[in-house]
Simulated scan of single mutants.
Amino acid sequence: MSLLDTLSAGAASAPTRLDPIELFLQADIVVQLVIVGLVLASIWVWAIIFGFSMRMGNTKRKCDAFEKGFWSDDDVDGLLDTRRQNDNASARVAAAGITEFRRSHKAGLRDKEAARNRVAQAMDGQVALEADKLANRLNFLATTGSVAPFVGLFGTVWGIMNSFFQIGLQQNSSLAVVAPGIAEALFATAIGLFAAIPAVIAYNRLSNTVNGFEARLTRFADRVHAQVSREMETV
């Protein structure tokens, strides 16, 4: 076989594109562990994104239905009991204010202004609690967005160190010796970015959604507080 034929055969057998699975299988065990951890983090990030979106949509629909009925239904107690059983954020906010109002009314309402402040504080506290419950799982998105690139970089640094070790071991600094190890190492950084970028985008977007929902509950609480204040004036 001629030299030209040998080169042609080698070119034909060489890969024509990157194979992520092959890069993973050929990587050092430390780099493999880094990649597996980042892939699991990425899966969890997407699970949080889809789960939160579905939960947020369901929560808004429940709150819409409750708030519509709250201002038109005379049986407030029955409405509150039903909605609280159905896990309704607006119902819990209204219940916090109305419960505090009834406690103050039972005590005689000697200081109406203080009673108004207690009602407002009770609802404000419940609004903050509802927002915290919604935003609780978003902390993982922020953590992944901040840490994943550095975890991937750690895998890259380790892989490059291993490539230099192979150079010293084989006494050969040709590109054919170091290129595979460097490619495997850089793959860890790519996976880190793959996990971090959606996490950062989702965290900013979903945090804005939580802030908007908190503002909505605050406006509803203000309306309830105004209604309770009018009730106090007639007592």
Rank of each mutant, 00 (worst) to 15 (best):
M1A: 09
D5V: 08
T6E: 03
L7F: 13
S8G: 11
A9I: 08
A9C: 06
G10R: 12
A12K: 14
S13Q: 13
A14Y: 10
P15L: 09
L18R: 13
D19H: 10
P20M: 09
I21K: 14
E22Q: 10
L23E: 09
D28M: 07
L33N: 04
V34M: 14
G37M: 15
L38T: 04
V39R: 12
A41R: 03
V45D: 10
I48M: 10
I48V: 15
I49F: 11
G51T: 15
F52W: 11
R55G: 04
R61D: 00
K62F: 00
K62R: 10
D64I: 00
A65K: 00
A65D: 01
F66N: 00
E67A: 11
F70C: 02
D74R: 10
V76Q: 13
L79N: 02
L79K: 03
L80Y: 01
D81H: 07
T82P: 00
R83G: 00
Q85C: 05
D87S: 12
N88F: 02
S90E: 07
A94Y: 07
A94V: 14
A95L: 08
G97L: 04
I98R: 03
I98Y: 06
I98V: 12
I98D: 02
T99V: 06
E100A: 13
E100R: 15
E100I: 08
F101V: 02
F101A: 04
R102M: 05
R103M: 06
S104I: 00
L109R: 03
R110F: 10
A114V: 12
A115V: 06
R116Y: 04
V119G: 01
A120G: 11
M123K: 01
D124P: 01
G125K: 02
Q126M: 13
A128V: 06
A128Q: 08
A131Y: 03
K133N: 11
K133C: 08
L134R: 03
L134G: 06
A135K: 13
N136Q: 14
R137L: 13
R137H: 15
R137D: 15
N139G: 15
F140H: 06
F140R: 07
L141S: 07
A142S: 14
T144V: 15
S146V: 05
A148P: 01
V151G: 04
G152C: 04
G152H: 04
G152F: 05
L153Q: 07
G155P: 12
G155S: 12
T156R: 06
G159Y: 12
I160D: 13
I167R: 01
L175M: 15
V178Y: 12
A179T: 11
P180D: 07
P180A: 08
E184V: 03
E184T: 04
F187Y: 12
T189K: 10
T189D: 06
L193R: 05
F194V: 11
F194G: 06
I197Y: 09
A199Y: 01
A199F: 02
A202D: 02
Y203S: 05
R205S: 10
L206P: 04
S207G: 04
S207H: 02
E214N: 09
E214A: 15
A215P: 00
A215F: 10
R216W: 07
R216H: 13
T218M: 05
F220W: 00
F220L: 00
D222Q: 10
R223H: 13
V224C: 01
V224M: 01
H225P: 01
H225Q: 14
H225K: 07
A226F: 11
A226R: 08
V228A: 11
V228C: 14
R230P: 00
E231G: 01
E231A: 09
T234N: 08
V235Y: 12
